[in-house]
Design a protein around this nucleic acid. Structure first.
Lengths: 360, 360
DNA sequence: CCGCTCCCTCAAAGCGCTTTGGGTGATGAG
DNA sequence: CTCATCACCCAAAGCGCTTTGAGGGAGCGG
């Protein structure tokens, strides 16, 4: 009895939803076959232009919308792209993820694509990827938070599913599609600026050491220091999650060093937030006693220009990256391979008041 | 019998290797009809317990996974829930959204549900809802950021699609399913605490005035003030987006008032961030010269206990709310109406160092 | 041993779309 | 006048699942 009721409910739902016409009705209305209508709609060439116009017009009038589930079943295409969201109970979720998602979603929805967001413990991402692909309800996968020699790349290649990587791994061939920013270059330039301002002892508040972007940023920094005949003291480097909390603690540790750094690079404005707090607490003037540069992902809630002392930054919009990746992913799914395989975006160095000449 | 089993094992292995098994193959493997297998899988009562066990075992061995598209087509159920993400080019995306999503996603993925995330200009949400429902590829809708007399409630009721509201509207009957926190109570209690500490002039850094939660929080505050024979001066209230930037600007304005408030309530820790900055800049000691209480959504990147002066807060986890809403939404879709229609969560008042006796 | 429930299982009919493999009439060439 | 060639269009066969309506076998009372 209960089951029967349920079934009826669903039928009702279906009909309510259906308010829509279906292909069959539409074709009857037009006096055409379903084939022809379908072809007209999907842009096949063997349909008379006039017929196609007639079909399109009927679609407009009836408000016909193809049933996605039926399309998916018939084509075998799922119409959705998979994301692995690194999060777990008791594990910090990443602010940067939301912003990225905004860009991705914006673009995806334009093509009527769904997401399958699969939360996963950060250490379990490989298995999650596998499961997600095996589930068969995604057409393409997006992965991020790349690590050194990241095993997911090989995995995805072997799974023969379109995918795009946000970032790049290190230590494996880069023959996969990616979108990355030039982290090395960005932190090289930032460091160079500090060196030119006379800084000799520069510290780095970096993201977790296993992430490729963190490794590259450090490398860029070291390169710029080397050019000036300097080297990066390991005591001046900290790898932590990119939260306010760790920024604060990290900066405090720097300030306790016997030979205090005069300038600090931060891998995120969120880290910088805590760092600034520590500096204020220590009574140090930013831009005078200590210089600060942060990488800015353009998080709308945290603008570097609004810091008490506006922050010099290397900027690259995370949202744009999301949007771009969605675009490329979808065009790969639809086999419109016109977009480039690999992209490296330059970050923009924007000088504000948090950087000044080294104190003497 | 034994031989048959072995043969089955062998076949199973081969099929598993070959790729995905489908229902037909699975039923052939078992020597059952598709109907029976389907029923066994979907928990229908008319299947022998032993048979069901046999089926389940075969599923395990073959790694069979039902094709979602086919299921959706056959049942008319889309297997996904719709979200409207308030964001647009040039419009701030909300940090709180990401955190909420983490909870929602975590729960949804457990039931193999998808999302359809539809970004929308905040002023265009009604139309977006309509479009989303009409698209026919969601089974249920979630809406948030409720406003006074929110037209979306009536809209969704008329569309006869399961939905849950995060928050509650104001000025319309509350006969719809929602999950809200007791904003009135939370800010009532917070204000009461301040009053007890001797504060007489208390200000409010609130979210945008059109949001119901903001209205309720203000109301709660006014009630507590009234109980003490006080009233809320309009110059002591500010409605702004909940960003660091606005927190800073808002607090600055408060500090410029002829009669400066001695305590401030913030609708978000993000607002508090900027507010604290302004206080520091003005050289005021938090917890001594000025008391501060913020509402804490438990954003992992911004913990109130890590503020330079740990923040007294009213706490309610946004992630838990997301998770809970997903659970209820899914159970409504599956017609397991065991969960309550309406829930009001109490926020927890946690006293830390940012509140102290009023200065004299 | 018959007949009648219960259980359990089955074959087959959709769900709405895409796609294959023809057809048909008009056109132009031979 | 015939035949190949287009340009259009069609009927029908899936895609993999759920669900209906019906059938077969075991167990029981008569």
């Amino acid at each position: 009895m209960k089951a029967a009721l349920e079934r009826e409910d669903f039928k009702a739902l279906r009909i309510a939803k259906a308010g829509n016409v279906n292909l069959k009705q539409l074709s009857q209305l037009l006096g055409l076959s379903q084939t022809t209508v379908s072809r007209a709609l999907n842009g096949y060439p063997e349909v008379n232009a006039e017929t196609r116009e007639r079909v399109l017009d009927a679609v407009r009038r009836t408000g016909y919308r193809p049933n996605r589930a039926a399309q998916r079943l018939a084509t075998g295409r799922a119409g959705s792209i998979g994301l692995v969201m690194p999060t777990a109970d008791g594990h910090d979720s990443d602010v940067h993820f939301g912003e990225f998602l905004a860009g991705l979603g914006d673009e995806a929805v334009r093509h009527d694509f769904h997401f399958v967001i699969n939360p996963s413990h950060p250490d379990d991402e490989e298995a999650t990827c596998k499961r997600l692909v095996a589930s068969g309800n995604i057409d393409a996968l997006f992965i991020a938070y790349m690590r050194e020699k990241d095993p997911r790349v090989a995995l995805l290649k072997s799974l023969s599913i379109p995918f795009i990587v946000h970032g790049r791994s290190i230590g494996i061939p880069t023959d996969y599609p990616y979108l990355d920013i030039d982290n090395t270059g960005a932190f090289h330039d930032a460091t160079k600026l500090l060196v030119q301002l006379g800084h000799r002892r520069i510290a780095l508040l970096n993201g977790p050491a296993h992430f490729a972007f963190a490794i590259r940023r450090k490398k860029g920094m070291e390169a710029a220091l080397a050019e000036a005949g300097l080297r990066l003291d390991e005591s001046c480097v900290q790898h932590t999650p990119m939260t306010d909390e760790h920024g604060f603690a990290g900066m405090k540790r720097f300030l306790e060093l016997p030979e205090r750094p005069t300038a600090i690079l931060c891998s995120s404005t969120v880290l910088a937030l805590g760092a600034v707090r520590a500096l204020n607490q220590a009574g140090l003037r930013i831009g005078a006693d200590v210089s600060l540069i942060a990488h800015d992902d353009v998080l709308p809630m945290l603008k570097p220009e609004n810091f008490s002392v506006p922050l010099t930054t290397t900027r690259s919009s995370l949202r744009s990256a999301g949007s771009r990746i969605a675009k490329r992913l979808i065009s790969r799914i639809l086999n419109l391979e016109t977009l480039p395989e690999q992209e490296l975006w330059k970050a923009e160095l924007i000088v504000r008041a948090s950087t000044g000449p080294a104190p003497r």
